[in-house]
Amino acid sequence: MRRQIREKLIERGLFGAASTSIIIVLLIVLFMVLEGCSAINFNFLFGYEWNPSHEKFGIVTIVISTFYIGLGALAISICIGIPSAIFLSEYAHETIRNIIKSSVEMLVGIPSIVLGFFGLIVLIPLIRENIGGRGESILAGWIILSIMTLPHIISLSEDAMRAVPNSFREGSVALGATKWQTVIKLILPNAKSGVLASIILGMSSAIGETMAVLMVIGNPNIPWIPNSILDQVRVMTSTIVIEISYAVWGSPHQQSLFAIGVVLFIFVAIMTSIARIVVKGEIRRKW
């Protein structure tokens, strides 16, 4: 009897701990929506001009810039990350794999402000002197962000490739396929959903990233739709960080900044759900 009570108590306690994260998410979303929803209207969603001194709060340019930065960084980290994952999972010796894998994991541990500072001190002068423009640019944002999303893409897609059963590989080689043919025809199609999920999660972390990007993309006074990779842009997160501390509380300006937070949250939530559906659908089909 006592044992049963104890078990019940433990279960309740664990449940309580597990539900804190739900409660926190709900409270934050509620707070954000309450603060921001009054600013969400047609002009906010479809306006091109963000100019708070004229009470113009259109986020189109900012949203486009955000995706421009996010997609570009993602493209770079896919080009490096997927081949790395293939190498780690299929070709690398155990020792080399351990070395590379642990350094990739170390990359996750670098605080984003340190990366941002690296960008500010090293990357920006480099771009300014060798390529042109002001240095602070979309290009700098791409490079810094791809460094940040790379480890996620590598480790998630490598896990997906290693999850492909060894019997598949043996069968393929037994039929006379080369290693590369096995990778292309067998490993990648079977690991597809995991790789795709890693890309989507990489994208959602890229557009939500703040400090490092803020430090290298320039943040012009009034954002415009970029027409060169050396242009300066504003993304959603940097606009919030820069302006929130001086916005008069309760003003349309402050509400619009919270509304940007709501929009960003919706984007990230959509991408996370897509990633979950992709992974889940695959599992159901396979087993």
Partner: peptide, 11 residues
């Protein structure tokens, strides 16, 4: 005059 769009913002 107003500050034009290409001035970079530092917080």
């Amino acid at each position: 005059v107003e500050i034009f769009s290409k001035a970079l913002i530092k917080p």
